[in-house]
Design a protein around this nucleic acid. Structure first.
Length: 309
DNA sequence: ACTGCTAGTGAGGTCAATGC
DNA sequence: GCATTGACCTCACTAGCAGT
């Protein structure tokens, strides 16, 4: 990535998609924005087209158009690697681009540290199969029995102040930075919060309050919540969607975390594995600064920071 | 059995209004 | 003045239905 930036093939102002495609094209098992990629000069089907015609590919995959932006989760998925009979890699990458200093809203998909393909299939609901169908073709390990169920690490490619030359920051962020309590708990606590506000505003008997928090422990599943609700005699169907905004402490680009502007960063949890990354970077003698962020709710994170001239 | 259409759902980003 | 909340608008994919 650093070499690419220095060779001027990409810049921090390019589309985030272009940054990913330029640096990782051959390592990707899934690209959500096939249309966008094509516009940027990347044809994910180029190799397969040597073997099959476009028509055959469409028929095999049961899709009408090879070049659409699915707008499903995730934006990118890397190919898995089989090592000592175990699947590793296959990471998920989501993009978040915004003009201001905050991270663009998470819409419907709550950010997490890990996700399995099975979970992705479910959370994508009616679009559920598309990711798997495409990734199966590109990932040579897709026949492994654990391919759909092993935990994949989620990363977020975050950019803030994207149009401001003096303030721009780009980071690849460990999903753990956002998931400081598990999703199910988050959702049930959200309903609890809503209820508490009602309790303050209206007279709700104490016995009901006690029962209520028990009930909320069972409201945990976003894919069941997000259906539009058919209410007898109602002529509209209300539809709940959980959107989420990163708080300051969940935004690595928060001023207090001191990531400098005009930098490209990798932000990962400081654990035993990250020590290895640290050693590799230190030995590489690349112009990368290493420092730590103390996440208010989730311990220490390591930042590998490269400044763009 | 096949085709074409549409309702339902998932996702994205930005801006306006409101609250503190 | 900045953060939070509400709203807007767009597009893709699938299931299921109606018509042939």
């Amino acid at each position: 990535m650093v070499e690419l930036l220095e060779s001027k093939k990409i810049s921090l102002y390019d589309e985030l998609e272009k940054i990913v495609l330029t640096s990782s094209f051959s390592n990707l098992a899934y690209v959500d924005g096939r249309k966008t990629a094509n516009k940027l000069g990347f044809d994910i089907w180029q190799d397969l087209k040597q073997i099959y015609s476009e028509e055959v590919l469409k028929r095999k995959l049961k899709i009408k158009d090879l070049y659409t932006d699915s707008q499903a989760f995730p934006d990118f998925m890397f190919k898995s690697i089989s090592q000592d009979n175990q699947l590793i890699g296959g990471e998920i990458l989501e993009l978040k681009d915004s003009k201001g200093g905050g991270i663009a809203s998470f819409n419907s998909t709550i950010p997490t540290e890990y996700k399995t393909l099975k979970e992705i299939e479910r959370l994508n609901g009616s679009k559920g199969k598309i990711v798997i169908k495409i990734a199966e073709i590109f990932d040579k390990n897709s026949s492994d029995p654990l391919w759909k169920t092993y935990k994949r690490k989620c990363f977020y490619l975050i950019r803030t102040h994207k149009t401001d030359k003096s303030k721009i920051k780009v980071s690849i962020v460990d999903g753990a930075f956002f998931e400081t309590i598990p999703e199910e708990k988050l959702i049930s606590l959200m309903f609890q919060n809503i209820f508490n506000k009602h309790a303050k505003e209206y007279h709700i008997p104490d016995t009901v309050k006690e029962n209520a928090s028990q009930v909320f422990q069972y409201l945990t599943d976003h894919s069941l919540i997000s259906f539009s609700q058919d209410i007898p005699k109602a002529s509209i169907k209300p539809r709940l969607r959980i959107m989420a905004e990163a708080k300051n402490e969940g935004n690595p680009h928060w001023e207090k975390y001191n990531i400098p502007s005009r930098t490209l960063n990798l932000v990962i949890k400081a654990d035993s594995e990250s020590k290895i990354t640290r050693e590799i970077i230190e030995e590489s003698k690349l112009p990368i600064k290493i420092f730590t962020i103390n996440h208010q709710n989730d311990g220490e994170f390591l930042v590998f920071s490269y400044r763009v001239r």
